[in-house]
Simulated scan of single mutants.
Amino acid sequence: MDSDERLLHFKGFNFERSTVDIDILENLEDFDIRDDDVFIITYPKSGTIWTQQILSLIYFETHRKQTENVETADLVPSLEYNIRKVDFTKRPSPRVFCSHLPYYLVPNGLKNKKAKIVYIYRNPKDVITSYFHFSNFVAVLEGCENMDMFIHKFLDGKVAGSLWFDHVKGWYEHRHKFNILFVSYEEMKKDLKSAVQKLCNFLGKELSDDDVDAVVRQATFKNMKSDSRANLSNILKKEVGTKSDGHFMRKGTIGDWKNHFTVAQSERFDMIFQRKMKDIPLKFIWDINEE
C-alpha cells in the first residue's frame, strides 16, 4: 500500500485512513460543543499523549489519586481518531478531547470562545525525528528507509497531519477566533511545574500545591513510559498494530534531531523554516541548553 492509499484527503487535510472516524469527520462542523469542553490540539508527534496525561491528572481526581484504573486515552479521547467509536454526546462534562485538526476543520462551536483550546507546538526538527521513528513502528503508517526520504515527505506534507508549517501558522494566525493558549513542548520539558500551573490558570482549575506536585510527578516521561494506562502502548499493540516490539514513548527529549539530521539536512530545513515562519513570533527551542 503506498502512502496515498494510507492517507485520507479530506477538505485539504491528510488523515490516517484506517483509524480516522469518517462519520465524525463528515459532521465536524456541527459537532455540539459545550461551554466547558477543552481541546488539546497538536500537530502529530508534538506532545499529544503527554498533554493528555497532564490534563487527565488536572481534571480527574480519581486519575490523579490513582483510585481508578482507566486509560488516559479514554479520559481524553481523540475527536477524529475515535477508534473505540465512543458516543461523545453521552460523556459527562467537562469533556476533554485531543485532536490534530487544522483550525478550519474544527467544530463551529469552538468559535464562541467559551470552550478552551490548548495548542501544543514543538520544534519541527524533533517532530520530524519522532515522526520518522513512529512511522517505522506503527503498522498503519508508511515507513521510510532513511531520514532523508522522510524529511522530503514531511516537507511535501505527504503525511497524516499534512504540512507542519500550515498547521502551526494556521492556528496562530487565526488565534483571535478561539479561546486558545499556546504552550511549547520544550517549555513543558524544561519546567513542567510552571507549565502545569500555567495550564491550570488558563483552564480555571485551582489545585493545591500537593495536587500540582502529584500531576508533575505522574506526568514525567519516566513515569509515563512505565504506566501502560498513560503511554498508549496497549491501544497501539492491540487495536492499531505495530511493526516491532519498540515503544510508543521513545525518548521525549529536546534536540534528538542532532543525532539524525546531517549538517546539510539541518541547514536546508533552517532556510525553509526561516522563510515560512518569519512572521510567526512563537518561540522555538532547538536544544535543551538553548534559552
Results as ranks from 00 to 15, higher is better:
residue 133 H to Q: 10
residue 265 Q to M: 15
residue 98 C to Q: 14
residue 82 N to M: 05
residue 203 L to D: 00
residue 155 L to F: 02
residue 28 L to G: 13
residue 37 D to F: 09
residue 227 D to Y: 00
residue 152 H to K: 15
residue 68 E to P: 00
residue 198 K to S: 08
residue 46 S to N: 03
residue 114 K to I: 09
residue 156 D to S: 09
residue 155 L to G: 02
residue 181 L to Q: 14
residue 48 T to R: 13
residue 285 I to P: 03
residue 204 G to A: 08
residue 92 P to T: 01
residue 240 V to K: 04
residue 231 N to L: 02
residue 196 V to H: 04
residue 220 T to D: 03
residue 267 E to V: 14
residue 268 R to C: 14
residue 72 T to K: 01
residue 139 A to Y: 04
residue 280 I to K: 04
residue 238 K to R: 13
residue 132 F to T: 14
residue 141 L to S: 07
residue 74 D to C: 03
residue 26 E to S: 13
residue 17 R to H: 12
residue 30 D to G: 06
residue 139 A to N: 11
residue 174 H to N: 15
residue 101 L to T: 04
residue 16 E to D: 07
residue 132 F to W: 09
residue 176 H to K: 13
residue 289 N to D: 13
residue 275 R to F: 08
residue 141 L to Y: 14
residue 92 P to K: 07
residue 80 E to Q: 11
residue 13 F to K: 10
residue 255 G to I: 01
residue 254 I to Q: 06
residue 224 M to D: 09
residue 93 S to R: 02
residue 44 P to A: 13
residue 104 Y to F: 14
residue 15 F to L: 06
residue 117 I to M: 12
residue 170 G to V: 14
residue 93 S to V: 04
residue 13 F to D: 02
residue 57 L to H: 11
residue 248 F to Y: 15
residue 155 L to E: 10
residue 208 S to L: 06
residue 227 D to L: 01
residue 127 V to L: 05
residue 245 D to S: 13
residue 173 E to A: 07
residue 194 S to F: 02
residue 209 D to H: 11
residue 76 V to A: 12
residue 60 F to I: 10
residue 279 D to F: 06
residue 26 E to H: 13
residue 76 V to D: 14
residue 182 F to A: 04
residue 133 H to I: 07
residue 123 N to F: 01
residue 242 T to C: 14
residue 236 L to P: 05
residue 51 T to L: 14
residue 179 N to D: 05
residue 244 S to W: 00
residue 73 A to M: 12
residue 261 F to H: 05
residue 179 N to I: 01
residue 14 N to S: 15
residue 35 D to E: 11
residue 252 G to Y: 10
residue 97 F to V: 10
residue 225 K to L: 07
residue 233 S to N: 15
residue 232 L to H: 11
residue 171 W to D: 00
residue 183 V to P: 13
residue 207 L to D: 07
residue 288 I to D: 04
residue 284 F to I: 08
residue 18 S to L: 08
residue 187 E to G: 02
residue 32 D to G: 05
residue 64 R to K: 11
residue 49 I to A: 15
residue 156 D to W: 00
residue 207 L to K: 03
residue 18 S to C: 06
residue 113 K to Y: 00
residue 127 V to S: 09
residue 16 E to F: 02
residue 257 W to N: 08
residue 253 T to L: 09
residue 284 F to C: 02
residue 195 A to C: 11
residue 163 L to T: 06
residue 173 E to Q: 10
residue 175 R to F: 00
residue 40 I to E: 11
residue 215 V to K: 08
residue 87 D to G: 09
residue 255 G to Y: 02
residue 75 L to H: 03
residue 142 E to L: 09
residue 173 E to P: 05
residue 217 R to Q: 09
residue 114 K to C: 02
residue 115 A to K: 00
residue 129 T to C: 11
residue 138 V to I: 15
residue 257 W to G: 08
residue 222 K to P: 04
residue 171 W to V: 04
residue 106 V to W: 02
residue 141 L to C: 09
residue 244 S to L: 04
residue 121 Y to C: 08
residue 195 A to F: 00
residue 75 L to Q: 08
residue 167 H to I: 02
residue 221 F to L: 12
residue 126 D to V: 06
residue 55 L to M: 14
residue 232 L to M: 15
residue 73 A to S: 12
residue 210 D to E: 14
residue 247 H to T: 11
residue 246 G to I: 03
residue 11 K to W: 00
residue 288 I to N: 03
residue 92 P to W: 00
residue 30 D to Q: 13
residue 93 S to G: 01
residue 287 D to S: 15
residue 17 R to A: 10
residue 236 L to I: 15
residue 170 G to E: 07
residue 207 L to N: 08
residue 11 K to H: 05
residue 146 N to D: 15
